[in-house]
Design a binder for these strands. Structure first.
Lengths: 119, 119
DNA sequence: CGCACAGTTCATGAACCGTTGAAGGGAGCG
DNA sequence: CGCTCCCTTCAACGGTTCATGAACTGTGCG
C-alpha cells in the first residue's frame, strides 16, 4: 500500500475514520500564544525589545532614541509588560525596563537575524 | 569600580560618549520580522499553522475543522502565504497547503507548548 | 509645602485588520 | 460546451489597535 492509494479518496466530505486526529490546542492556549506574537508583531515594540536585549534602559532614554514621545513609549511598554515580555525596576526617579527572561532575548535576536538574511 | 559607580550618573540627558551603541536594526528588517510575528499573532491563523504542522491539508477541510467559511480560511492562508509561512500545491481540484519549512513548525509548536505550561 | 522631573493613564481620532457574502476563476467530468 | 466543485478575489462593515496630548501619580529636592 503506497501513499498514492490514500489520494484515491480525495473527497473532503468523507470522515477521516481512523481517529488519527492530532488534537488541536485549547482555544485559551492558542489565544495566549497569539497575544505574545501580536505584542512582538509591531516594529516599534520589536525595536524596544531589541534595544533591551542589549541592556536595561529607562523610558526617557528609549523615547529619545526612537524619537517618539514618552507617552507613546510608555504605552508600548505597558503592552509588552502585560504579555510579560519585559519587567521593570524603580531606581529613584527613573524606571528601568529589561527583558523578562532569556527566551525573549533569543526569540527577538534570532528573528531579526533571520529577517536580515532572508531580506 | 563596582556596578554601583555606574549608577552615580543616572542622568539620561547625557551622551553615552564611548560609542558603545549596540547598533539598531534596519527599519526594513524590523518591519519584516514584525510582519512575520503579526501573521502568527492571530489565534485563527495560529491554529491553521498548528494544524498544518501535523501534515498537509486542503482548504475545505481546514474550513470544516475550524467551522469558518472557506472564504475566511482562504484569506487567512493568503496572508500566511504572503509572509511565506506556508506553501501550496495543486492536486486535481484540491489545493493542499503545508508549512513552508521546519523553522515555522518549530516556532509554532514550541510557542504553543510554552503557552500551555505557563498558563 | 511647592516645584520639577519621570512616568503612567485617559480619551480621542485615524489607521489598520478580520470577517463575510457575492462575484470570479480554473480544473475535472459528462 | 455546460455544469459542478474547490478556491480566490473584491468590496464593505464593524471592531481593534496605535499615536498623541492633557491630566494625573509619585519621587526627590530646596
Amino acid at each position: 500500500m503506497t501513499a498514492a492509494d490514500v489520494r484515491d479518496e480525495p473527497d473532503c466530505d468523507h470522515e477521516h475514520g481512523g481517529g488519527s486526529k492530532p488534537r488541536l490546542s485549547d482555544p485559551a492556549v492558542l489565544e495566549r500564544a497569539a497575544a505574545i506574537f501580536r505584542a512582538v508583531g509591531d516594529p516599534a515594540r520589536l525595536q524596544i525589545l531589541e534595544r533591551l536585549a542589549h541592556g536595561e534602559c529607562c523610558v526617557s532614554e528609549l523615547a529619545e532614541e526612537s524619537g517618539d514621545g514618552m507617552s507613546t513609549v510608555s504605552q508600548r511598554l505597558k503592552l509588552l509588560r502585560a504579555e510579560r515580555l519585559v519587567i521593570r525596576r524603580r531606581e529613584g526617579k527613573h524606571i528601568f525596563y529589561g527583558l523578562a527572561d532569556s527566551h525573549v532575548s533569543e526569540l527577538v535576536l534570532s528573528a531579526l537575524a533571520h529577517a536580515d538574511e532572508h531580506g
